[in-house]
Nucleic acid binder design. Sequence first.
DNA 1: CCTCCACAGGAAGCGCAGGAGT
DNA 2: ACTCCTGCGCTTCCTGTGGAGG
Length: 430
Amino acid sequence: MESKNSKRAEGAFQSKGGGGADPLGEVLRRALQRPRIFRDRNVMRSDYVPDRLPHRDEHIRRLGEILAPALSLSKPSNVFIYGKTGTGKTAVVRYVFKRFREVVERENLPLVFAYINCRISGTEYRVLAELCESIGVKVPFTGLSKAEVFSRLRRGLREKGVLLVACFDEIDALVKSYGDNLLYELSRINEGAEECGLAMIGTSNDLHFKDYLDPRVLSSLSEEELVFHPYTATELIDILTERARLAFREGAVPQAVINLCAALAAAEHGDARRAIDLLRVAAEVAERNGDSIVEERHVRLAQSMIERGRVFEALSTLPLHSKLVLAALLLLAKNGVPNPISGMIYQTYREVCGRIGVEPLTDRRVSSLISELDMLGVVKSDLVNMGRRGRTRKISLLTPVEEVEEVMESDELLASLLSHTPASIDKWRK
DNA sequence: CCTCCACAGGAAGCGCAGGAGT
DNA sequence: ACTCCTGCGCTTCCTGTGGAGG
């Protein structure tokens, strides 16, 4: 990507030849001359697996020990990994998998390591399908019954004589919407099979996840357990320093900037991914600015950009009715009702629907949409009891009104709604 | 102390789309 | 062509609930 862009830029630059009105030429010349902050952009990507994981040596060693029997082709214990987001669960698993794969390749062992993110895969069917694909069994993305995919997986494992070590990342997402049936079936897939089978690693950022599991599944899945604690600010500094050393030109990112990123992320539950994102965006801001050194103001700017990016992302990808719910929320906030309750939002939403001639959804559905927006981090909803006046949710935007409005203005349909204040709002205004 | 509000949120089911197998 | 399967977005129906006001 990087090299492709710069090659194209160079070509255009040369073809400019002896001057003339070329609006792009100046931009391209500046792009080439621009002081480069990045040395290797990939290092700052979220799926990058570093060669060293500061402050996680102990976890790496434990996981390695647990999985070691796989190399002599006996099924290792299942593992359960707990820890909040950005505490290095995924990084450690990926790192250990990477190192094991190197050995597998060298020794030519019938051993496969699969990594599946259950929240992204979403359904039991897709998780099964991914397991199948990891051992080279083709399955259509829909059309088969789950039982059929399951038996293909079992058959595949037997016929190929493969030992599969699968990591189910964010396994709680799957269990919360589908129950633990699939896990139970998978834990029994080994029965009657020797020299092949399935070992499971589950990760969850919900510490109470255990409560959702059937005792049989729990005992099978958590033969071993690992707990990851959030990083402290000093640990985050080490992580960022290590990454920065690889990702940036020497001297481009001062220690003070790294410390600031670490401090900001540490304030939000020690999330390393957040910290790395923040530093990356700050560096991009600086580079786009033509600066050769990342400064504190770039970090501050990056923080608000990340915030705005989340709203923009949400607004551009959300389905129509979720957008309309957000529009209702914004209209309420703009007109002196910053923390409306569900009922107010629903009424406003209905009026908004009426204005553009869209059939409104039921209140139940809208309630679910609000929950989704909550999970996306676009709004915040708090359960409140108002005694006689019932029990409801108080909902507020997590992003400043002006920023949401700015993003909404760019959407033709939504922008047209903002000019008109729904009548019902009057009665709630104080 | 009891009532009853205004919803939350679970469960079930419906209709549709996309696809496999026969 | 027909049956069977799942996912998805949605509705309908339902039970649950903390505390202000009677």
